[in-house]
């Protein structure tokens, strides 16, 4: 069993994630290019996308792609939800819907950090993963609403007062700070740089987790699957090929390094923002 892997993400789920990552990275890069256009770094970024105006076009296209991806995900959710067991099914341990045990796990986890409690026995989805998942819903709605308000100001002003675009502009920027701050610091570190995951957690690329590591980190999930008898039949899969591992490692590190590059230079140039 030690060579076997536990299937955590399906191909569709991994595809959603990689497309979301790609569109978010492009939007962050083009957004930084415009926000920091007064700096040499911002101009360099903008040059890649065809200048200040070109960056805006790419930003709008990738933003629209992200919104469409989000709508596709809603359709996907509507398809995969077991409506016969609704709402019990979406409140179960395989669901990403938060419940009271997440609050308990959070405080127990903090207690473990401080040496005051046992490490929580996580189920399939831990509280921080649920937070990350639902944060995307908030982020896409915020980026989408404010972004489309600014997409065509003349058309927007037909429906809402023009001064609401002052709000949209600043909220779009502040939401970027929230998303970039959370993803490029907390999400990157938890997923790839903490000692258990270092040098990289490839699960989102190849979809599989090591059995022993999962038993160590998510004993409640593994125990439940063994009890239900689904582990050996459906969940355990063969290890991905070496080529696939290398590709996912290179791609993953490219994205992580690019994100850190944007965060670092953004922080270094934050004083040069003129609005």
């Amino acid at each position: 069993m030690s060579n076997k892997k536990i299937l955590r993400f399906t191909v569709t789920q991994r595809l959603f994630h990689i497309l979301l990552v790609a569109s978010f990275m492009i939007q962050t890069a083009t957004g930084c290019a415009r926000l920091f256009i007064e700096t040499a770094w911002g101009r360099g970024l903008a040059f890649v996308f065809g200048g200040y105006d070109g960056a805006l076009i790419v930003h709008k296209v990738s933003g629209t792609f992200m919104v469409l991806l989000f709508l596709c995900h809603l359709v996907y959710l509507a398809v995969v939800i077991d409506w016969k067991r609704f709402p019990k099914g979406v409140l179960g341990p395989d669901s990403l819907v938060p419940n009271l045990s997440d609050i308990r796990d959070f405080f127990q986890h903090i207690g473990w950090f401080l040496g005051l409690a046992e490490e929580p026995k996580f189920e399939r989805w831990a509280y921080y993963e649920k937070f990350g998942y639902w944060a995307v819903f908030w982020g896409v709605v915020m980026f989408g609403v404010t972004g489309y308000m600014l997409f065509n100001p003349v058309a927007t002003a037909r429906y809402v007062p023009g001064w609401t675009m002052n709000l949209a502009l600043y909220l779009h920027r502040e939401e970027m700070e929230l998303a970039v701050g959370y993803l490029f610091i907390a999400h990157f570190f938890v997923s790839h740089f903490r000692p258990r995951r270092f040098p990289m957690d490839r699960v989102i690329f190849d979809g599989t987790l090591d059995y022993r590591e999962t038993l160590d980190e998510r004993p409640a999930w593994v125990g439940r699957m063994e009890k239900e008898g689904v582990l050996a039949q459906e969940i355990l899969v063969s290890e991905p090929s070496r080529a696939y591992k290398i590709v996912s490692f290179v791609l993953g590190y490219f994205l992580v390094c690019f994100g850190i590059f944007l965060l670092l230079f953004g922080l270094l140039n934050i004083g040069a923002i003129t609005w």
Binding site: Y170, G181, V190, F193
Partner: peptide
């Protein structure tokens, strides 16, 4: 309108980062 909308989102950003950055560092250390 601008002040309170911006400050509400700024507060959300600060609270999120104030929780998750120490959380991440403590986790790594532990």
């Amino acid at each position: 309108q601008l002040y309170y909308a911006y400050m509400a989102l700024r507060l959300l950003t600060l609270v999120t980062l104030a929780v998750f950055i120490p959380h991440t560092l403590l986790w790594g250390l532990r």
